[in-house]
Design a protein around this nucleic acid. Structure first.
Lengths: 119, 119
DNA sequence: AATATACTGAACCATATGGTTCAGTATATA
DNA sequence: TATATACTGAACCATATGGTTCAGTATATT
């Protein structure tokens, strides 16, 4: 069984729970951007955007580098592997669980049919 | 392009950002459970667990039904499809982005080699 | 040298989160 | 009928979140 690093999943799922931050990730996927550029694109103050970038950086999803007076943001090395894996394993659990339930439902339907005939 | 329902992703990613709640989902994958059972398993007050279950329910990941004095919690109908899809599309973006970068790095390496020879 | 740009940090604000306790209500059990 | 069980809701608490403004600092540009 895969071992998940809990605080990491906490941080990355929390980072992904905000639409602005998901938008920033998508944006950075199309090219690096400065804080100013991101702030404008998402109609927010510089300070506000800096905080969002900070959250993404903490989660390892973004890296930044300051050159001159401009801080450039890029996608980080993390590719959401662990997050994808967690969700995938949950989906398998879900499938198993509901396949099992479906069998029971089928059985109940069968029984109902039989009971119907008896009446 | 797939359309994501933003408040839904917000709610489900937020729900997944807590280790206790992820644990509850895994637990319910192995079988239904009452609030009391979950509270005990996760060393928490009934009230505390009820709140977590409420968050999962809001996100559509869990459903509950009260029979007599016991409220039974089950996995909800949502299978994290949208969440998986968002992450998958992000991973594709990431791959494209970094494959492109790798090419540039390769090119720079080549150029360096040539420059080296020239000296 | 003066001005404009890009960010940074502190402080503030309202609301949310993750937990608790305590005082109920409703339902089983003896 | 009395008691135990299972939950519920309100209130409280500390801390986090998502945003702002305002007052800087550092770097470019003119």
């Amino acid at each position: 069984m895969v071992q998940y690093i809990t605080p990491r999943l906490d941080a990355s799922f929390a980072a992904l729970s905000d639409a602005t931050r998901r938008g920033v990730l998508e944006q950075l996927g199309r090219g690096d951007a400065s804080i100013t550029e991101l702030a404008e694109k998402f109609h927010m103050t510089l300070t506000g955007m800096k905080k969002h970038v900070g959250v993404l950086e903490q989660a390892g999803l973004v890296t930044t580098e300051k050159v001159g007076r401009v801080r450039t943001c890029k996608l980080g090395r993390r590719r959401l592997e662990e997050e994808a894996a967690w969700i995938e394993s949950y989906r398998q659990l879900w499938d198993t669980r509901f396949d099992a339930l479906d069998e029971i439902v089928e059985e109940l339907k069968q029984r109902e049919k039989v009971d119907g005939r008896k009446k």
